[in-house]
């Protein structure tokens, strides 16, 4: 029989522990909502129809941010278009085809290291390789490729996890029917893994849309009123526009509302893309339950 006081002490410890856990969750949510609310209250007054649909005017102290919205959309879609196929194919190789051993471990370590590289290094790499060496110039193409490499580790990691989560029995069942390995992967494994892969893509989108350093040297223009005509054109981009207004603008104090407004638009854009992906994912999950 345990002494009453010991029991009480154990319950107390449990309470303290749960309290700490709850508090941590609360702090994290508060931080998130705090940032969102702060930006919303400072930025929402700047959001008008003109702000969303016009180009900046008066040396970027007035007017809208439409070119930056379009630019960020192009860059993000471009980055996903580069990284998603490449990432999925790499993950398929690593989990389905490659013989598990030292070689695969080295590749995985490489991918993880890539994830830890500071984004400005990606920017410099993009400048050196895509912009200068491949002569793409500062362009949507160079920026998308740079951002694509930046988010590649995220997408490979998520895709690998998603592929590994597909029950081995599905693969066995398919192969035992005399279906080839590639058909098994494309018809059974990939469709089952798609919701998980999409999660990786969502994270990638958020990162690609929000990064400033990688596009600073590879894609982003200080100011262009015109919309890009091809993937070899420079574009404005939301994060870079915020950076410019906040540090190098002609009148930093006066454009504060514009800066917050731009930040709000960027957040809304990322959340919007996430939302679409989440809806697609959950509808896929409903169909693929096991």
């Amino acid at each position: 029989m345990m002494a009453q006081s010991t029991m009480r002490w154990r319950y107390l410890k449990q309470k303290i522990f749960f309290g700490v856990v709850r508090l941590s969750a609360l702090i994290i949510s508060l931080a998130l909502f705090g940032i969102l609310a702060y930006i919303f209250f400072h930025g929402f007054r700047a959001i008008t129809w003109d702000f969303l649909t016009l180009s900046p005017t008066d040396s970027m102290t007035a007017g809208g941010i439409m070119p930056a919205i379009v630019g960020t959309l192009y860059l993000t879609v471009g980055a996903i278009a580069v990284a998603l196929p490449l990432g999925i194919v790499s993950a398929i190789y690593l989990t389905e085809y490659a013989k598990q051993g030292r070689w695969v471990r080295i590749i995985r370590i490489g991918v993880n290291c890539l994830a830890g590289v500071p984004s400005v290094v990606f920017g410099l790499f993009g400048l050196g390789f895509f912009v200068v060496f491949l002569k793409f110039g500062s362009s949507i193409l160079a920026g998308s490729l740079t951002l694509g490499i930046l988010i590649l580790p995220t997408i490979i990691g998520a895709s690998e996890e998603a592929l590994k989560a597909v029950p081995q029995t599905f693969r066995e069942a398919s192969l035992a029917l005399g279906v080839s390995k590639w058909q098994t992967i494309s018809r059974i494994v990939l469709p089952s893994a798609l919701p998980g892969i999409l999660t990786g893509a969502i994270l990638g989108v958020g990162r690609a849309a929000g990064e400033t350093a990688p596009i600073m040297f590879t894609a982003a223009a200080f100011f262009t009123a015109a919309l890009p005509k091809s993937i070899f054109d420079e574009v404005m981009a939301l994060p870079y526009h915020i950076y410019v207004l906040a540090t190098a603008g002609t009148n930093i104090e006066m454009t504060r509302p514009l800066q917050y407004g731009t930040a709000l638009v960027l957040i809304a854009l990322v959340l919007g893309i996430d939302l679409i992906a989440i809806v697609i994912r959950s509808s896929m999950r409903r169909r693929k339950r096991w």
């Binding site: 069942a173 035992a176 059974i188 089952s192 169909r287």
Partner: peptide, 10 residues
């Protein structure tokens, strides 16, 4: 082949 645990595809 038929396996130990039923393993229909989703």
């Amino acid at each position: 082949m038929v396996f130990q645990k039923p393993n229909p595809f989703p």
